[in-house]
Amino acid sequence: MDKDQQHGDLNRRDFITGMAVTLAAVGAGAAALSPLTNAEEIPSVDAFLQEHYKRLTAEDKKKIFARLEKKIEKTYGVRTTIKDPKPLDDVVYGYTLNIGRCIGCRKCVYACMKENNTSRNPQIQYIRVLRMKKEGRGIDLESADHDYPQNEAGDENYYYMPVQCQQCENPPCVKVCPVNATWKEKDGIVVIDYNWCIGCRYCEAACPYHARRFNFAKPQVPSRELNPDMAYLSNRPRYLGVMEKCTFCLHRTRVGRYPACVEACPTGARKFGNLKDPESEVRKIIENERVYVLKEELGTVPKFYYVFAK
């Protein structure tokens, strides 16, 4: 017994304790690494080394879009084309919404979900319809609620105010992004490169309108509801852990069409057009009607105008 202790310095109790500690450490390490080994999507080398959107050449884009299309066809079984429409010259998009005529029917919300391939479970909706009582405090955002049930819509005692991305001229979300994954395009639309976003959610915290959404879970879109008309910067399927936001449907508006929410609105409360064209719809409305912007005092200069009209 004495001999053992002198020579080895390792008795039975120490040995067992040491083994237990080692096993526990290995187990904890494996548990810490399990998100990596269980990850559903391990990005390919090309996807991992992909450059920022602004530094891509036309050839790079062609390759990347082909890779994304292939992946979409593999996961959803739908043949799609990913386009990359460029901002038009002499165009700055503007939006007006007539609060006097909005009935809070949420048609725009669901048309947007369908058009932009947002996640159905958990739900991601770009538009929130706020409801405020007309009598009393009027347009008071603090007394607003945005999950009123369906049968309480269309009430004449309430104002309904849909809030979505206001496409600010001076966007706070762009300033805070640590990796420049979001930026303002030439035509005023704030876009995100979903492959470059690291999911830090600074922009979600910075946005005063709560217009940005985060993919907390893997977005689930039924393949028969997938919109095959896609653009790289707007409505291609998103990944787990990236931000997304309204882009005024740039895959539609940059080829001259209206956004999906405008086409879905049954009362015609929503109007869309070019702010630089003096003959456009929105310019006429802004010049002739009672117009205000949301949270003007923050200095974000939104391009989304709310109108009080009949």
Partner: peptide, 18 residues
């Protein structure tokens, strides 16, 4: 309402913005 319709606020538009 006629004034607002002339201004373009009242009423539905379909087609192209451009």
């Amino acid at each position: 309402i006629y004034k607002d319709w002339r201004n373009g606020t009242h009423g539905v538009r379909r087609g192209k913005w451009s």
